[in-house]
Design a protein around this nucleic acid. Structure first.
Lengths: 194, 194
DNA sequence: GTCTATATTGTGATAGAC
DNA sequence: GTCTATCACAATATAGAC
């Protein structure tokens, strides 16, 4: 499997296009021809860079997860306190959704998980696990600093917070509501801050 | 548009099959042939009952929303207190997910909303609005009885709770975690009960 | 109501010229 | 790396016999 850091400039444009398409329409909802038109080359050229759809989207997911973790590190470097970090985390989802109502890539793929190739499904699992780990340690730090309520335990809070944000994008799409992921996250956070 | 209460026995089997398929694979992820095989008739017979896919899934969604509201009424008739009602609400999602990891029909369609026919997208919107209305009045009653914390306001709690449950199904699928929607809901509820 | 047959379009993927 | 041409198949949908 190709690594996203070792691909050509054109292949990167392909990954860019595929990423947006998955977020907007899902794995089953886009085609190689859609990608080709966005990039401005023909369908067989896409196959030259990524022989199969599963491989293409696996690379998309790996890069997405990698960038997400970079942003989490950025939050850690910028903000010292857990409540601020958790609000900044929500802002990542807010920014994604503000861009043409795009879903979290792995939120979309998670919904489709049972019809996805197994290698791709495990990439999605890795994304969620990384997020829950980061959130759990953040909630735990907040609890130890007395800034977050001590119960439920940090892992349960982490899972609930992630679910709330992923759900906010899905519901926000279905509802065409003015209420955004950041608003929903703030309602959640207001119940757990001490 | 046909109404789900005025369809033949065969058409009902078609709706049953389509409902499960949407929950498992999404609107774009199933075909008329899939439905035909589940029902045990041929593809053109499905078209005889429901000329287009959009119409079929619209009927599926109308029936799903109707049944959901019946279950909400059942909860009201069975349980007097808001916290119990909210836990019973989560149990609806729990039961759906326990059945072969099926998503909420409108959670799945919500994720796909931007590639759905407009008439179908508004059926999905109706489902979410009905749920938020019911949850908001339930949270409000709990607040007035002093059983639910007074802030955030009932509507914000309702939206956050719905998002948490819809998200729990998506994340639960992507994660293959033992943690279920009811567990995540309980974590949420524990932070809002007084 | 159900079927066979078919139209039409789109899909992921490959062969092979340039 | 990109293209034209094409394969094999699956999709939604329709015509018309029974």
């Amino acid at each position: 499997m190709k690594h996203f850091s070792e691909i050509s400039a054109t292949a990167e444009k392909v990954v860019d296009a595929a990423e947006g398409l998955v977020q907007e329409r899902g794995y089953t909802g886009f085609s190689y021809d859609d990608v080709a038109q966005l990039v401005g080359i023909k369908k067989p050229s896409i196959h030259h860079h990524f022989p199969t759809k599963a491989e293409l989207v696996a690379v998309v997911t790996q890069r997405y997860t990698h960038r997400f973790r970079e942003q989490l590190l950025g939050i850690e470097g910028r903000l010292p306190k857990a409540p601020e970090r958790l609000a900044a985390y929500a802002a990542l989802f807010e920014r994604t959704f503000a861009h043409n109502r795009r879903l979290c890539l792995c939120g979309m793929l998670g919904a489709e998980a049972d019809s996805l190739p197994e290698t791709l499904a495990s990439e999605v699992r890795r994304f969620f696990e990384a997020n829950i780990d980061w959130l759990a340690s953040t909630f735990l730090a907040g609890q130890q600093a007395g800034l977050i309520r001590p119960s439920p335990d940090a892992r349960a809070l982490a899972e609930a917070y992630l679910c709330t944000l992923e759900g906010a994008m899905v519901v926000g799409r279905g509802l065409r509501s003015p209420r955004s992921p950041a608003d929903v996250a703030e309602a959640f956070l207001s119940t757990v801050r001490v």
